[in-house]
């Protein structure tokens, strides 16, 4: 099908875009990469009255580092995937990006679009929550930083206000004695995954687990954090047994998946348990590898 009629604006500056959001609010939808929005418009699931195309706003396409790594909302997923700063300082993001759809889609799809879309099956919201990223929300009159824990508020929803745009995402730099892993199972590379997770594991000087974060995709109405499983690891010496237990707790206690077209709830739980163990082993290996390099 074809999209229903709408009014189209392609502002050349953020100020103009924010003025349009101030005037039209909810009625005006931001158009970023269009890789989720235009398919929805083609199906007429989405029928926005007004589109504010952000593609001409050059100031929203950038990646820079000072204390943290900040990525402009309109940076494409393929640009971020090939960026050396991302690979070096936010390796979890670097590892997750190639799992988003296919190269042709990542050439248009943006970092900000994926985060703002808040699809429970998407990779980036999971990465943002696991890393405790912050989102920069700007309106004509104000700007504020929103913590990832506060940003995602359910199925395809965020705490962005009707007159706000997401303009940047800030990722903390990878810390010492911290390992990470992103793993997912999809029927075909590029498809939305049946289950996936981002794991972050930090050790203290004695090699005991100082912090763990396990965040899953497609098993809840947004990125799902397994807090009980993570708590079970705290203060423990990393071991196959501890990782296996964490996988059990995550899959049995932290989540109640509903299943989807390709996977029953039980299968999603099974995959979650297996992936949790693998991700924790991989994260641990990466800490040890780094240690031997030093």
């Amino acid at each position: 099908m074809k999209p229903a009629p709408f009014k189209y604006f392609a502002p050349a500056s953020l100020e103009e875009a924010l003025a349009l959001k101030a005037e039209y609010g909810e009625e005006a939808k931001a158009l970023a990469g269009g890789q989720s929005l235009i398919p929805a418009m083609n199906f007429r699931v989405a029928q926005p009255a007004i589109l504010v195309d952000l593609n001409r706003i050059a100031s929203l396409r950038n990646i820079h580092k000072n204390g943290a790594l900040t990525i402009g909302a309109m940076t494409t997923q393929s640009t971020a995937e090939k960026n050396m700063l991302v690979a070096q300082h936010v390796p979890l993001l670097h590892e997750a990006l190639p799992s988003i759809a296919h190269p042709q889609i990542r050439n248009r799809g943006t970092i900000g679009g994926s985060v703002a879309h808040a699809d429970p099956a998407a990779e980036l919201p999971v990465v943002c929550l696991a890393l405790r990223a912050r989102m920069l929300a700007q309106s004509q009159s104000a700007e504020r930083w929103i913590e990832a824990q506060e940003f995602f508020s359910g199925l395809f929803s965020t705490t962005l206000a009707a007159d706000e745009l997401l303009t940047a995402v800030e990722f903390p730099l990878v810390e010492e004695r911290t390992g990470y892993a992103f793993l997912e199972v999809a029927r075909r590379h590029g498809d939305y995954a049946m289950v996936g997770l981002a794991a972050v594991l930090s050790l203290d000087e004695n090699g005991l687990c100082r912090q763990a974060r396990l965040v899953y995709l497609n098993v809840g109405d947004g990125p799902l954090e397994a807090t009980q499983a993570a708590a079970s690891l705290l203060g423990q010496k990393p071991s196959a047994k501890a990782f296996e237990d964490a996988g059990k707790i995550a899959s049995q206690e932290d989540m109640q998946p509903f299943g989807n077209l390709h996977a029953s709830p039980q299968y999603q739980q099974h995959l979650s348990a297996v992936l949790t163990q693998r991700a924790l082993h991989l994260a641990l290996d990466r800490i040890t590898q780094k240690a031997t390099h030093l």
Binding site: Y8, G34, N42, Q104, N107, R108
Partner: peptide, 24 residues
């Protein structure tokens, strides 16, 4: 955006032309 039959090059990069607007 699923099948790839509409893939073209936009400034040298492969993109799906069915999920992009002509105005863009």
């Amino acid at each position: 955006g699923v099948c790839g039959a509409c893939t073209i090059l936009l400034d040298g990069q492969a993109v799906r032309s069915c999920i992009m607007l002509a105005v863009q």
